[in-house]
Every structure is written in C-alpha cells, then in structure tokens.
Design a protein around this nucleic acid. Sequence first.
DNA 1: TCAAAAGTGTTCTTATTACACCCATGG
DNA 2: CCATGGGTGTAATAAGAACACTTTTGA
Lengths: 229, 229
Amino acid sequence: MGESNNFFKSAFSVDNVIFGFDDGDLKVLLIKRGTAPFKGKWALPGDLVYPNEDLDNAAARVLLELTGLKNVYLEQVHTFGAVDRHPLGRVITIAYYSLVKIANFELTPSSWASKAKWHSISEVGDLGFDHNEILNACFNRLKQRVKSRPVGFELLPKKFTLTELQHLYEAVLEIELDKRNFRKKILSMNLLKDLNETQENVAHRPARLYSFDKVKYERLVAEGYNFAL
Amino acid sequence: MGESNNFFKSAFSVDNVIFGFDDGDLKVLLIKRGTAPFKGKWALPGDLVYPNEDLDNAAARVLLELTGLKNVYLEQVHTFGAVDRHPLGRVITIAYYSLVKIANFELTPSSWASKAKWHSISEVGDLGFDHNEILNACFNRLKQRVKSRPVGFELLPKKFTLTELQHLYEAVLEIELDKRNFRKKILSMNLLKDLNETQENVAHRPARLYSFDKVKYERLVAEGYNFAL
DNA sequence: TCAAAAGTGTTCTTATTACACCCATGG
DNA sequence: CCATGGGTGTAATAAGAACACTTTTGA
C-alpha cells in the first residue's frame, strides 16, 4: 500500500461525557466495557463516527442509544489524537459533553457496553484509554461554561428550588457559596419565573419552585446580554 | 470494500489560524491556494495529519513550514467535520490558532500555497472550504483567551510600550479602552518589568519599555493566581 | 513653537463580601 | 416541641468607570 493511502488508515470516534446532577452530587455516566480493548474497565460512552454522519450527530447518537434522550445540551470540547491513544490503531476522538436531567430516563446499555452506571465525579477511578484526561477536559469546560452561560438548568428538573440550584453550582464549581448572596445575584438577573408553587411533603418549611425563562434569556441575548454568575 | 472499511476512507487535517499584530491591527496569515480545490482562493494554511504524527505537532509543522518559527503559542480550538465540508471526500479538520511576533520572520510559502500574505482581520474576504467559519471560531476563542490568560504578549515584541499593549487589546477585543484605567489595571498585576529604557527617535515624548515577566507569572499561577484583564 | 503621543489621580458608582435570625412544615 | 432546611437585609469593602491636563521629544 502506497504511503499516501496511509492517510486513510485512520478512524475517528466521538466520546461523550454525560453529566447528571442528583442527590447534591455531579455524576458522570460510564459504561463497563464488554469487549476488548479494556474489557471490564469503566470508560466513556463513545463510538466511531459513521462515514456519512456529522460529528455532533454522532455524539447525539451515542447519547440517544444509551439514554433514549434527544434534544439534549451537547458541546464539543476537544479532540484527542495522540498516535498511541488507541491500542488497535490510529483513532482520533472528538470529545463532547452532554447535560441531562438525570431522572428522565432508564439506562439502556448498548452493544459496546455490558453495563452503564452513574458515578459521582469525585469517585471516578482509572478509566480505559485516555478517558480520564477527556473527562477532565470536559469537566473543566463545564466549570467554565456554567459561569458564563445558563447551562446549569439543563441538569435540573423544569421546576427547582433555589437551594437545588445553589447546590448544583457548588457541585460543578467545587466551591461553597453564600446562600443570601447567591439568591440575590440569581434573582437580580430576572431570568427565573417564580411559579408560586411550593414543595410538598417535606419535613421542613417548603421551598418555592422556580423555572428558567429561556425565551426571555434568548431575547436578552439578542440584545447583547451576557449571563455571568 | 466492506461497510466496516468505510470507517477508514476518511482523512484528517489541521488548519492553523496564524495571528499577528502589526500597525495597530490584528492580522491573519492566509495562503493563496495553488492547487484545486479552491485554486486561486485565499484559505487558511493547513495540511493532512501524518499517520504517525500527533495533532499538535501537525499544527506546529504547518506553522514551521510557512514561517520557520518554532516554540510558538498554539491552541486547539474546534474540530470541523461536516460530511460535505471538503469537495474531495470526508476530511475532518482540527482547527488551531497560533500567535506570532510578526516582525520575526520572512514568509516562505510552501508547496500547497502559491502565495502567503497577512490580511487585516477586518478585511478577510470569502475563503475556501469552511475557513471563514474556522477563522471566526478561532478569533472568538482568542478574544476569550486574551481576557483570562496573558497570551497577548505572544503577539508583541519582547520590549513593548503600554500604548502598544493597549492597542493590541483594543484590536483583539474590538473595543476601546480608557488609557488611565488600562494602565492602572495592567500595572497593578505586577507582571510587567519596567526596563528603564525608552523609545528612540520618535517625534513625541518617548514611551517607557516593558517586558512581560513570564517566570513570575508562572510562579503566581502555581499559587493559584488567575490573570484577568 | 508646533504636533504628537506619553504619562499621571481623584471622584463617583457599582458590585462583592460578610454575616445571624426567624419561619413553616412533618414527624 | 423538635429537627430540618427556607427565607430574608444591611453595612463594609473592593472594583470599575469617567474624566483633563502637563510632559517630552523631533521636526
């Protein structure tokens, strides 16, 4: 085979870091690999990109196959292409992350996985391939993004309390926030709709429920508004 | 050829948006394509990634071939992989940008280019492929980066005046800055060394020269410091 | 002596931080 | 009536914005 044909002896894949938020904790959906290489190890869900498939579609497909979810927040982060990153050949992978509302679905592990499971971000062990590095890059991107875009809401149910929102930010940013200052700031943006509803059956004063006003946000953005936490 | 082999009928390339700063203006280095497709059109310098070459190396190589420069600031931005983005087949491209000190070299157009030329960012016309989109993505990333990392200095000579630095920020961010506030802020970071030298042969009061103290910056970063303009 | 850019402080306004007690509910 | 988390305001500090004149040089 001629030298020039070597350019075509490579493949590309997408890997998708699927984030969820539950129980005050940021989670990542990992699969236990059912086939070599790295059989039996936890890894990020991913797949080769089909020849006639755009990259974003491939990442969305991986998510869909695993969760059944569509129209999910998805962002490309970085492409990893070290020559030796895949033991079976040259595979460059385009890393994405997704933000899902964790309660909205059942897991349906796909062909390449024997098992899928949510892992707390703080308890992710040694993953196959260069997936720890990929996870890190995506987590860092999410930290950055959450401060400059209202993407955090993608991880919460439609109706949420201010405390839930605060805990989400605390989990993503890995810092503690002051309750009063957080509320003052988030409410001063006027992007939350007070639903005039409260929690039910909680053993304490029930919290008010809010929803994110996406329509209003997009109108403001068109006028030059910049979300900043 | 079997279906599975189709995964290997694709190639990947890097494209490199090379930024320079001259004459108060942000510039991009473009090549006039000497071969099809898009022969005669301006485009970004780029090349296929060699089978045994890491992505960053490929981007650095493109830069080296065109400018003779090594050890240049280089950052991966985004991967573009629309199925039809290349007229000759499926080519996914990984976009980088570089920051160079524009006076430091002579242009040496390489095989795929008949001509290389600096273009003011505001005067870039219709480029080949999806290169306008790539240029935009890189420009936006640079705007963001320049606010949170001291990368602007990569575009200036080692010794520079505060006014040159201010003009650089104004060109990159496409805004005007207040002279006194800009100086106050940048000097309060204590990252500039006052060289106790001044400009010579200028028809006005000569400006003091400064250099960026990279060693000090890196020490501060290790202690948790965050540059922010 | 003129033109051109360098250099320099203060005031006002706005955003950020720190901080402690009472309230509503279920068990 | 107790435990649990919900909800609220003010004062102090820090950061950002607005703004105009004098200085030094070469021509």
